[in-house]
């Protein structure tokens, strides 16, 4: 059994780390960025948010909010699936979990 420091140096471990970090921060930053953007744009051009969303009586501001809630749900389901597959396919992980 190797110790933590040597596994950390292992290129296979580093590759997995990189893949997971990309997923982790890619998802986090895009979602939080979209949320902060949503709030700031609402302040800058409030009138645009009050206009009708494609002819319905739902305003744009609310429709975008629902889209953000929906995106959070979709991205969460995706994240769980991707990571689960990543772990199952990665024999580096499975080997060390023995």
């Amino acid at each position: 059994m190797r110790d933590g420091a040597t596994i950390f140096e292992d290129p296979a471990f580093q590759a997995m780390l990189k893949k997971r970090s990309r997923l982790r921060w890619g998802f986090s930053i895009s979602l939080i960025g979209a949320y902060i953007g949503y709030g700031i744009i609402g302040l800058q051009i409030p009138d645009a948010y009050a206009t009708s969303f494609f002819g319905s009586s739902m305003p744009w501001g609310m429709a975008l909010g629902f889209i953000l809630i929906g995106s959070s749900i979709v991205m969460s389901v995706l994240y769980v699936r991707i990571i689960n597959r990543l772990e199952a396919d990665n024999d580096f992980v499975t080997r060390h979990r023995e």
């Binding site: 982790r24 986090s28 979602l31 959070s72 991205m75 969460s76 994240y79």
Partner: peptide, 9 residues
Amino acid sequence: TVSWAFILF
């Protein structure tokens, strides 16, 4: 909702 997704990620 966004905060919970962030906790997950």
